[in-house]
C-alpha cells in the first residue's frame, strides 16, 4: 500500500479527535443545555455588542494614530520623529492591562480636566475626571492608544516597502510629500498593511476582554456577572468563547475581501488558498498582550 505512513497518522489523529468529541459531548459538566439557554441571553447579546463597539472604536483610534505616528516617525525632523519613537517605546513597553487600569484611575492624578490657556491662563471648560473618564472611555483610551503604537510600526513597515522610485516619480511630476503619501505611497503600502491590521483587529476583539477588570460589561464581564450569581461558570465561558469565535470568523472573511481589493494591479491576486490561510490565522491562538507575532 502506498502512503501507508500517512494512513496510519490519519487513523491516529481521527481516533484522538473521536475521543475528544465523545468526552466533550458526553461529559454532563459541560452543561450544553445551559450554554444554549444563555447564548442569546439579552445581557450576553448586549455584552457582545459592547465588545464590537470597543473593538471598532479602539481600532479606529489605533489606525488613525498609527498612520500619524508612522508619518511622524519618517519625518526628516529629528524632533518630530523622536516624539513618535518615544510614544511607540512607551505604549509598547507597558502592558495594555496596566494602561487600562491607569486610565480608569487617572482621576487620582488629574481630578479636574479643563480646556483653556495652559500655564494657568483662562479656562474655557472644565469637568471632573471621574465624570469624563467613564469605564467605557478608560477602556477605549487604554486599548486605542496602545494599538496606535503597534499600528504605527505596521504602517511604517508598509510605507518602507514601497519602492523609492514611486516617490521619485511622484516628485518629478510636481506632487508634494503629503499628496504623494496619500495618492501613491499609502495605497501601495496597504497591501503590506492590511494583513497584519486584520490580525490586530482580531487580536483586539479578544484583548478587549481585558476591560472586564474595570467592571465594564463587555462580553466577558457580562458572562462573569451571570456566573457569579448562578455559578454556571464553564457554560458561560463557553457562551463567551462561541461569540468571540463567531466574530473572529466574520472578521477573517472581511479581511479576505479587503485584501483582494488592494491586490488589484498586481499579478499576485489573492486566491482561494489565501482565504483558507486567513481562516487558519483567525483560529490561531494569540497572546492577550496584542503584540506583533
Amino acid at each position: 500500500m502506498r502512503h501507508w505512513g500517512r494512513w496510519v497518522a490519519s487513523a491516529i489523529v481521527l481516533f484522538i479527535v473521536a475521543v475528544i468529541v465523545y468526552s466533550v459531548v458526553n461529559n454532563p459538566r459541560f452543561q450544553w443545555g445551559v450554554v444554549g439557554d444563555f447564548l442569546f441571553d439579552p445581557r450576553i447579546v448586549r455584552g457582545a455588542r459592547v465588545t464590537l463597539e470597543l473593538t471598532f472604536l479602539a481600532m479606529l483610534i489605533g489606525i488613525v494614530l498609527g498612520v500619524v505616528l508612522a508619518v511622524m516617525r519618517l519625518s526628516p525632523s529629528p524632533l518630530i520623529s523622536g516624539l513618535s519613537s518615544f510614544y511607540i517605546w512607551f505604549f509598547r513597553g507597558t502592558p495594555v492591562l496596566v494602561q487600562i487600569l491607569f486610565w480608569q484611575f487617572v482621576g487620582a492624578l488629574y481630578p479636574k480636566i479643563s480646556i483653556g490657556v495652559p500655564f494657568g491662563g483662562h479656562v474655557f471648560a472644565s469637568a471632573s475626571a471621574n465624570h469624563l473618564i467613564t469605564p467605557f472611555v478608560a477602556g477605549l483610551l487604554g486599548l486605542g492608544l496602545n494599538e496606535g503604537a503597534y499600528m504605527a510600526e505596521i504602517v511604517r513597515a508598509g510605507i518602507l516597502s514601497v519602492d523609492e522610485g514611486q516617490t521619485e516619480a511622484a516628485s518629478s511630476l510636481g506632487m508634494r510629500r503629503i499628496l504623494t503619501l496619500r495618492r501613491v505611497v499609502l495605497p501601495q503600502a496597504m497591501r503590506v498593511i492590511i494583513p497584519p491590521t486584520g490580525n490586530e483587529t482580531i487580536s483586539m476583539l479578544k484583548t478587549s476582554s481585558l476591560v472586564s477588570v474595570i467592571a465594564y460589561p463587555e462580553l466577558l464581564y457580562s458572562a462573569q456577572l451571570i456566573y457569579s450569581v448562578n455559578f454556571k461558570t464553564i457554560p458561560l465561558l463557553i457562551v463567551a468563547a462561541i461569540w468571540y469565535l463567531f466574530f473572529t470568523s466574520i472578521l477573517s472573511i472581511g479581511q479576505y475581501y479587503i485584501e483582494r481589493h488592494y491586490a488589484r494591479g498586481t499579478s499576485g491576486q489573492v486566491n482561494r488558498r489565501d482565504l483558507a490561510q486567513v481562516m487558519a490565522n483567525a483560529m490561531r491562538f494569540r497572546h492577550e498582550s496584542g503584540g506583533i507575532p
Binding site: A169, S172, L173, V184, G265, T266
Partner: peptide, 16 residues
C-alpha cells in the same frame, strides 16, 4: 518640478 518631465530607467509607473 511640475514644469520638467522625467522618464526613468525603471518606468516607475504607479502600479495601483
Amino acid at each position: 518640478r511640475a514644469e520638467i518631465g522625467m522618464v526613468f530607467q525603471r518606468f516607475n509607473l504607479f502600479p495601483h
